[in-house]
Nucleic acid binder design. Structure first.
Length: 810
DNA sequence: GGAATGAGCGCC
DNA sequence: AAAGGGCGCTCATTCC
């Protein structure tokens, strides 16, 4: 039986639309027996096409669909599109996250998931993938129903724990998952229960240590013995490892697999979430009970009162109420509100689903994408332990520094707010709509650009062009700048300082499409640069631990070096091998052609042109874009670009080759070592949307370069940790920003940290191009000073003092 | 009154 | 017609 989303109005038979006909064709090709066709919606008219209103009629139609199924008695069902899944199973997971997944309807009939988007099928790559998926759904052997409800043993006592150990110890690899309440690294962070399952298809038992079991020292010791000796898998296992370490004093030493990360490596457009990944193994929907309980719990906190009838956990309840408004971190506390038996059952199911998903993803990824498993093993797996450590350590914050920064910003903000009263008593300068009204109605300016939503744009580039035409323009620009600084980097940052006086951002190892790491809560990777007065104040809020020194190690021009190495361009490589100023040298190489100047006559002006174009090349920037940035004519920008590509012929060839490859395969590769690489699909290159196509093509050039560059830092970090541990060096890594690593170091260890971290960071091969690391040190992030290559920290300090003296005597 | 989205902008 | 890749956060607004 094939179930689609909605029938076409007035169609003579089901599946008559172009997509429908396509499905029909495939079904007739691959399925020999009789076929029934139906839809998720039929008893009431659907709302607007593809709108969210559709969920209601679909749910109303479910009983009818069920009765049809009872009559048809299908052997298997194809659910074409997420609405069809909603109609059949009552949930609508993200289609990209459940490719080659299936669920069950009554009577153990499997439902295979297939995407449905007429538009997407016009893309040759998506169409091919789709056809393969339909073929799979029709020809794969019907799976055996997996036990959705394994046995969940609650571990309260030592006896329980010993019985659990007896069973679990039979296996080398286990799965671990905690439920928590509170903010990680914060004072009240608590493990509410901790579940363990074994990585074996034959086992369907889970053991859940209750709070009581975790409190009991001997029962907890048994959990520790398991977690510290076995291979441990999980979903976002870094989180569970942090909780285990902070709350239980348990150090998970050997992570074997993370379902989120491996899923995202193998299926980059998926979301990696366990509730979706469970659909890959026929275990979808297991989170429903807990999600209902969580919703109820949160709803009760909204009543702004403790909830007497449920779980009398007044601490979490009051915390949830406090956190509820605004911003909504109430979820951090919500698990503390749901009844124990629900929580344990949920945790047990989760850990069983994780085990099944982990086994499935490992087998599937090793078979279909061994390069991704190699990348997991060689790069990501070691990184988990390191990033757990960085998150646990956090970075020292200067609360008073942030407070005075905020206060200084408020002086300017208050003044500007006062001035804005001219434009109306309730004028809100934060509102783009209201700003647009003043500019384009009251002041009579003509809108030059529109936003995606069709409103007149008031963004920075628009306002920059209007600078000086009216004081209001400059005032808004300044207001936005100060608001951003205060909201995110001054007052906003204070919210993130925990009781240990430190800020603990979370790093997402699967947070980007290019293998860069992302950072959140707060984002420690977009703190303003220290070059401006305010930027310096923002970074100065991040300081060394008492008595220590911050050391920042920066990969110098890593992306250009990667481009040089990856393309094998001899001219580019020669520049780096002779340790010249890359942008200056580029300007010199093209000086005759572009400016009709000798190499000697090339100065800062020409250098800056080259620099802009050099970076623009890596991003696929157009001549128009370059000219805008340089403030020159399009012709001039084009001349510089062509001159550089004329000189760097193999770079030009690589760019061409990348475009050719992505257009023919629909994906790009980020290479690492020993057969490990990551494949990023860029299927939009096969579509008909020119904008998206252009975007995907630009990404095809940028992705391998950005990705490979980022991998060097990710790979260096665990090695630096190993060196620190092996030598008992008083130093900790406290942050990383794509191509730089920041350490918090005892003063006497600064020299060895710089020397050895640099050695590690430059130890990787970049196709023969030398890697170079620059070092800076100081006691505040905004006030770091450069330490020359080979210079000793003590000598640098003397030099800085002398320079400061000279500066002050001037 | 929360969730989702859009605009805008900070970093590499 | 837009016009450089990759992110996350904040505020306003809209939707439900």
């Amino acid at each position: 039986m094939v179930v689609g989303e909605t029938p076409i109005k007035g169609a003579a038979r089901p599946f008559a639309s172009p997509t429908g006909a396509h499905v029909r064709g495939l079904v007739e090709k691959y399925w020999q027996g009789p076929v029934a066709y139906d839809y998720a919606i039929k008893c009431s008219a659907p709302g607007k096409a593809k709108s969210k209103d559709a969920a209601k009629p679909i749910k109303e139609c479910r009983p009818f669909l069920t009765s049809v199924i009872d009559t048809v008695q299908p052997m298997r069902v194809l659910a074409v599109g997420s609405w069809a899944i909603l109609g059949l199973l009552g949930r609508s997971p993200d289609m990209d996250s459940i490719r080659r997944g299936y669920g069950w309807i009554r009577g153990g009939v499997p439902v295979f998931y297939v995407e449905d988007s007429l538009k997407a099928l016009q893309n040759k790559f998506i169409r091919k993938r789709y056809e393969e998926d339909v073929k799979w759904a029709l020809t794969v052997a019907a799976p055996t129903p997996s036990h959705l409800d394994g046995i969940v043993h609650v571990v309260d006592t030592v006896d329980d724990a010993e019985a659990a150990y007896e069973r679990i110890n039979e296996y080398d690899e286990i799965v671990f998952d905690v439920e928590t309440a509170g903010i990680p690294h914060g004072e009240d962070f608590t493990v509410l229960c901790a579940g363990v399952a074994v990585m074996d298809t034959l086992e369907s038992d889970a053991w859940v240590w209750s709070e009581q079991g975790l409190r009991e020292p001997a029962a907890r010791a048994i959990l520790r013995r398991l977690l510290e000796t076995k291979l441990v898998a999980g979903s976002n296992i870094k989180y569970d490892a942090i909780a285990a370490e902070q709350c239980l004093g348990i150090d998970i030493k050997r992570v074997s697999l993370d379902t989120q990360i491996v899923h995202k490596l193998a299926e980059p457009t998926s979301m990696g979430r366990l509730d979706y990944a469970s659909e890959l193994v026929g275990m979808g929907g297991s989170k429903e009970e807990a999600q209902i309980a969580l919703k109820k719990a949160i709803a009760h906190t909204r009543l702004k009162k403790e909830r007497p009838g449920n779980k009398p956990h007044s601490h979490w309840c009051s915390q949830a109420i406090r956190a509820g408004a605004p911003g909504g971190t109430a979820m951090n506390y919500a698990y503390g509100l749901i009844p124990d038996n629900v929580l344990w059952r949920y945790n047990g199911r989760d850990v069983l689903a994780s085990a099944t998903v982990a086994l499935h993803l490992r087998e599937r990824t090793e078979r279909t994408a061994p390069h991704e498993m190699k990348l997991w093993d060689s790069l990501m797996r070691p990184a988990i332990r390191s990033f757990k450590r960085i998150e646990r350590v956090g970075i020292q914050a200067d609360r008073q520094g942030f407070e005075s920064f905020s206060a200084s910003l408020h002086i300017g903000l208050d003044e500007l707010r006062e001035g804005f009263k001219t434009y109306g008593k309730d004028f809100n300068p934060n509102s783009p709509d209201q700003v647009a009204k003043v500019l384009f109605k009251d002041l009579g300016f003509k809108p030059s650009e529109m936003t995606a939503g069709g409103k007149p744009s008031t963004d920075k580039s628009v306002l920059e062009h209007m600078r000086g035409l009216h004081p209001f323009v400059d005032q808004i620009l300044e207001f936005r700048r100060l608001e951003k600084l205060d909201g995110t980097y001054a007052a906003g940052m204070i919210e993130h300082i925990l009781s240990d006086g430190r800020i603990h951002p979370t790093f997402r190892l699967d947070g980007t499409e290019t293998m860069r790491i992302s950072s959140e809560n707060p984002n420690g990777q977009n703190i303003p640069r220290a070059e401006t007065r305010e930027g310096k104040m923002a970074r100065d809020g991040f300081i060394a631990s008492p008595g220590r020194i911050l050391v920042e190690l920066d990969q110098s021009q890593i992306e250009l070096r990667v481009a040089a190495g990856m393309s094998g361009d001899p001219e580019m490589i020669a520049i780096y091998k002779s340790n010249l100023d890359y942008h200056l040298r580029t300007a010199q190489l093209i000086s005759k052609v572009v400016w009709n100047k000798t190499e000697d006559a090339v100065g800062e002006f020409e250098r800056s042109y080259s620099k802009t174009v050099n970076f623009g090349l890596l991003y696929g920037k157009t001549d128009y874009g370059l000219s805008q940035q340089l403030g020159c004519s399009v012709q001039e920008a084009a001349a510089v670009r062509q001159a550089i590509l004329g000189r760097f012929k193999k770079l030009a060839a690589m760019i061409k080759r990348m475009l050719y490859n992505v257009r023919s395969t629909g994906h790009v590769e980020i290479p690492w070592f020993d057969g490990a690489h990551h494949v990023r699909p860029l299927l939009e290159v096969g579509g008909h949307d020119d904008y998206k196509k252009q975007n995907a093509e630009n990404s095809s050039i940028n992705t391998p370069i950005q990705g490979r560059a980022a991998m060097y830092t990710v790979a260096a970090i665990p090695k630096i940790h190993d060196w620190i541990d092996d030598n008992c060096v008083p130093a900790e890594i406290v942050n990383t920003v794509h191509d730089s690593i920041i350490l918090d170091v005892e003063p006497e260890a600064v020299d060895e940290v710089i020397e050895n971290s640099t050695r590690i960071m430059t130890s990787f091969d970049c196709w023969g191009v030398p890697l170079v690391v620059d070092a800076k040190a100081g006691d505040r992030w905004g006030s770091l000073r450069k330490i020359k290559h080979g210079e000793r920290f003590a000598d640098a300090q003397v030099r800085w003092a002398a320079e400061a003296l000279r500066a002050s005597s001037l």
